[in-house]
């Protein structure tokens, strides 16, 4: 007994150290940085200041924060609407088809998300695949300017995030005892009522974790706005990147990152309070 326990601590210790070093470390560094001042062209001076935080209340920054949240909420909603049916029906497939579906879901991850986003450019750009299709069908006569628009960014977000929702819903729907749905039908429920009263509540954990798995990363997917939105759509992530790379204001970038982190944590916390879900299906 004792021996076993000692072994397991020894096994876990490196992971703790790793987490401490590479996750907590940078976070603390970022927090400290956010209270530092900018110094000259490049550097950071150790001089303590609070001014980085109030600066975010300037209208352009506030508006950007708000836009980011809106885009994330909207994307999450679409991801849920698209991903839920996929995950749900995937769980109803026979074993063979389920494996195939799962494979199709995983294969895109073998290339980088950025590469796959460039694919969307070919699809969306003026006279691209999408325009060609619409014009070929005679639905439109002139190319739509879809690339570098808000819808293009939303589509990109959905595309990048929907697999997580599908997987979450799937792992929850897979555990759904179909005999319960049959019992509901037997007691007089239409297929839709049975879904609403039995399937949906019993797959709710999958929805919860899917929403978290979608919303939280969506706040950070600024490169999608970059690639598909041109420079028209600016999110917090874009602002942070700009401060870092172009304006070299590291303390302000750090402050914004801290706020973003706190914001997502608050959303997470609120969400868990509202849904009372402790277990995150598909997570861990």
């Amino acid at each position: 007994m004792k021996r076993k326990r000692r072994v397991s601590i020894a096994a876990i210790l490196p992971m703790y150290l790793f987490t401490l070093l590479f996750v907590l470390g940078p976070l603390i560094y970022m927090l400290i940085l956010s209270f530092a001042s900018r110094d000259g062209q490049w550097g950071v001076s150790a001089e303590f200041t609070l001014k980085n935080y109030p600066r975010m209340l300037e209208p352009i920054y506030l508006r950007t924060f708000w836009n980011s949240i809106k885009l994330s909420l909207l994307s999450t909603l679409f991801v849920l609407l698209i991903g839920y049916p996929f995950g749900y029906f995937m769980a109803r497939l026979t074993k063979k088809w389920r494996t195939i579906a799962m494979l199709l879901l995983i294969i895109p991850f073998w290339t980088s998300t950025l590469m796959r986003l460039y694919g969307w450019i070919i699809f969306f750009r003026a006279n691209g695949v999408f325009d060609g299709l619409l014009m070929g069908l005679g639905l439109t006569t002139a190319p739509l300017k879809l690339l570098y628009s808000y819808p293009a960014v939303v589509v990109g977000m959905i595309y990048a995030l929907v697999p997580f929702m599908i997987y979450s819903v799937y792992s929850s729907a897979e555990k759904l005892d179909w005999r319960l749905v049959e019992a509901a039908r037997d007691l007089g429920a239409s297929g839709f009522r049975a879904f609403l009263t039995v399937s949906l509540p019993l797959t709710a954990p999958g929805i919860f974790s899917g929403v978290i798995l979608t919303f939280v990363p969506s706040m950070g997917l600024y490169f999608i706005a970059d690639v598909l939105g041109g420079n028209k759509i600016v999110l917090i992530g874009n602002l942070i990147q700009e401060q870092l790379v172009k304006l070299h204001d590291w303390p302000f970038a750090a402050a914004m990152s801290v706020v973003l982190l706190v914001l997502t944590s608050v959303f997470l916390f609120l969400y868990r309070r509202v849904t009372k879900s402790d277990s995150l299906e598909g997570l861990v």
Partner: peptide
């Protein structure tokens, strides 16, 4: 005919009680 369009109810071998409902809600479901 669909199961809900038949005046037939079943006591299932596996009971098939709804785990997310109380006894009262289970019985009153129909």
């Amino acid at each position: 005919a669909e199961p809900n369009k038949r005046d037939v109810n079943t006591v299932f071998q596996s009971y098939a009680l709804f785990p997310h409902m109380t006894v009262e809600d289970n019985i009153g479901y129909g």
